[in-house]
């Protein structure tokens, strides 16, 4: 009853407020070589807009790349030297926008907003002059110059497939044995429960590795998504994520008695949050705080960000050690919980 009455409310709230493709309060960095009246007022325009927060003021070009690698900023604005002078003398000035296009939708939206603010400013200062000022905006899409959607969905699909295969299938096969009564027979045999559980998980581990290989081959050769980082790192992280998913599957199977329940829990508790809260479909930055906090417990969020960092941005382990550590912690946590539950059933 609660579900029937509550569902529409929850859905309206989630889809209406939380899951929008609109980007608000995106963190940006500014590299201002001019530091004159025009750039200062333009920067404050950006800051005043609800779409942007100026997070960092940079001093040299090298820092731009570093900030993007850290993943804190989505857009960088670079004013060349003598911005105001050029504007006054030649009625023309240049500004460069660099966007993190590993998420092409967000990059597109942000550069759109930024251009609008710049044009708005340009029109305002031109209004009482005969000769119009022109501010040329030059855009650079970092990591994904062609704004290919595949750059976004390949990591998303990887997270999704692995979660589906590992968690759901592991949960279902173990619960199936419970339903059939064969699990009991295996438990009275001299096979150790740990070995039984490992034996159940290994086929799905292998299957998932094959899945990763086929997804990567397809995306590199058919979709032309490059693998910029180390392929070994990518595999290592994927196997870590597979282990997290497998332990989750084990945890689910330890707690439920029927295949339907296992399926339902895998779908509701994993598939939907993964779809909505991993950052794959909807940018997490715009979600209200409760949802943002919730997204932290979704393993796929961390894996998605790792795959993007390694595959698209070509980053190494030193930039993603935090995410790796979180996944590792999740694996340990789920595994201990699953083993504990298994033991309680036996006692």
């Amino acid at each position: 009853m609660f579900i029937l009455l509550g569902m529409p409310v929850v859905q309206i709230v989630i889809f209406g407020f939380a899951l929008t493709n609109e980007v608000k309060n995106a963190n940006i960095a500014v590299l201002d070589y001019s530091k004159d009246a025009a750039t200062t007022s333009l920067i404050s325009e950006f800051n005043a807009s609800r779409y942007f927060d100026v997070e960092k003021n940079l001093v040299n070009y090298g820092q731009v790349g570093k900030e993007f690698k850290k993943g804190k900023i989505k857009l960088a604005i670079i004013f060349p030297p003598n911005f105001n002078e050029d504007l006054q003398h030649f009625n023309k000035a240049q500004v460069q926008l660099i966007a993190d296009a590993s998420d092409p939708n967000v990059a597109n939206t942000l550069t759109g907003y930024a251009s609008a603010i710049i044009i708005d400013y340009q029109n305002r200062i031109t209004s009482n002059r005969k000769l119009p000022y022109t501010i040329n905006t030059e855009m650079r899409m970092l990591y994904n110059p062609q704004l290919k959607g595949a750059f976004n969905f390949v990591p998303g699909v990887m997270a999704m497939v692995l979660l589906l295969v590992c968690t759901m299938m592991t949960a279902i096969t173990i619960v199936k044995e419970k339903e059939m009564g064969t699990m009991e027979i295996i438990l009275v045999s001299p096979m150790r429960p740990q070995i039984v559980v490992i034996a159940k998980a290994v086929p799905y581990l292998l299957l998932s590795v094959i899945n990763i290989i086929s997804i990567l081959l397809l995306s590199v050769y058919a979709l032309e998504v490059p693998i910029n980082g180390s392929i070994f790192l990518l595999f290592f992280e994927s196997i870590l994520f597979i282990l997290v998913s497998l332990s989750l599957g084990l945890l689910i199977s330890a707690g439920v008695a029927s295949q339907q329940t296992a399926m339902f829990i895998s779908l509701v508790a994993l598939f939907l949050p993964t779809l909505m809260l991993s950052g794959f479909m909807f940018p997490i930055e715009n979600m209200p705080l409760p949802l943002r906090t919730m997204s932290n417990i979704v393993p796929a969020k961390w894996y998605y960000s790792i795959v993007k960092s390694v595959m698209i941005k070509g980053l190494g382990i030193k930039d993603i050690w935090k995410e790796t550590l979180i996944l590792f912690g999740m694996m340990i946590f789920f595994l201990t919980m699953a083993i504990k539950k298994f033991k309680i059933r036996l006692a």
Partner: peptide
């Protein structure tokens, strides 16, 4: 041990079931 629930693998053959149980012992 033989439980009240029927406890062989439905989707294995007669022979395979015996091989499996022999194996786990």
């Amino acid at each position: 041990y033989m439980s009240q629930k029927f406890s062989l693998y439905d989707d294995l053959t007669v022979k395979e079931n015996m091989q499996f149980y022999g194996g786990i012992y």
